[in-house]
Design a protein around this nucleic acid. Structure first.
Lengths: 143, 143
DNA sequence: GGACAGTACATGCACGTGCATTCAATGCAA
DNA sequence: TTGCATTGAATGCACGTGCATGTACTGTCC
């Protein structure tokens, strides 16, 4: 027969579906809301956030290759995303002095402002989509 | 300053990043592995699985509009996904008798076989990507 | 009966993504 | 120094997705 999962597998599948449901609802709502009100996609916001965090950490410029592993995007997707942010005037690309293959990113005033404005909405969406039905073990699956 | 999250918000963000990381690693690996070895995307597999489950439940045909809420896709994406599955000979589209607007999906032999073949790999990938670091409550945040 | 809103699905279109490739710069070895 | 593999990033291309729209059918109200 081989049609049935073992209990362990069934648990994994339930966990996976729960994760899929949460990811779908959260990312969908984030994209819609951030896009409508601030012209930002979910990943755009994520990148701005990493830049802000890096600035708080002291440095004011971030290497793209350091940013890559933290956002879950391919190198090409990240490259184009940064191009969009730059075109929108939210970041500035500059050649890295120490390694001229690299690119340093700097958050502009507009970029920081946009992030600060968008952040409350971002947190609100997370609270809405992650906060309700907190019980990863069950397949609550509203959707 | 308004630069800092409240503890509750920080927790949400940590939870969100954990979710993003798991989703990225799992879906990426699923797409790559299922695609390479069985010519299926993650969502294709998910749809086949729902069809198999429906067949086990008794009926042998599923309405598309019943399938829609369970997979997290737009109606148009689901329509095209089904078209791909049909072109691959894994499902058959038939007009629904009771409501001729609707479409009934039937799993073909090939479709069921493909699912049965792909399922172990699917479970294996889930075990690899969801199994390590099991503790959704904490922001373990490797990556 | 006919008109009209609502539903189920398909399709045109724009866009973001990943893969493969390309180009520039670096590091290392001869 | 020259030559070559490697790394960082940009780009061509194919493809999957969502939004808006179109088409076919249903149900209701007149």
């Amino acid at each position: 027969m081989a049609e049935l999962d073992s209990p362990a597998e069934a648990g994994l599948v339930a966990q996976w579906r729960e994760l899929l449901a949460r990811h779908a609802s959260a990312s969908c709502m984030l994209d819609r809301e951030l896009g409508e009100r601030y012209g930002l996609g979910m990943s755009e916001f994520e990148v701005l956030e990493r830049l802000v965090e890096a600035c708080q950490g002291g440095g004011d410029a971030v290497r793209v290759n350091e940013l890559a592993p933290t956002v879950h995007l391919s190198q090409s997707a990240l490259s184009r995303l940064i191009a969009r942010l730059e075109k929108a005037g939210l970041v500035v690309r500059a050649m890295c002095e120490s390694d001229r293959r690299g690119v340093q990113l700097t958050l502009t005033e507009a970029g920081r402002d946009r992030y600060v404005q968008a952040r409350p909405l971002h947190r609100e969406v997370l609270a809405l989509t992650l906060g309700d039905g907190i019980d990863p073990a069950r397949g609550a699956s509203s959707d």
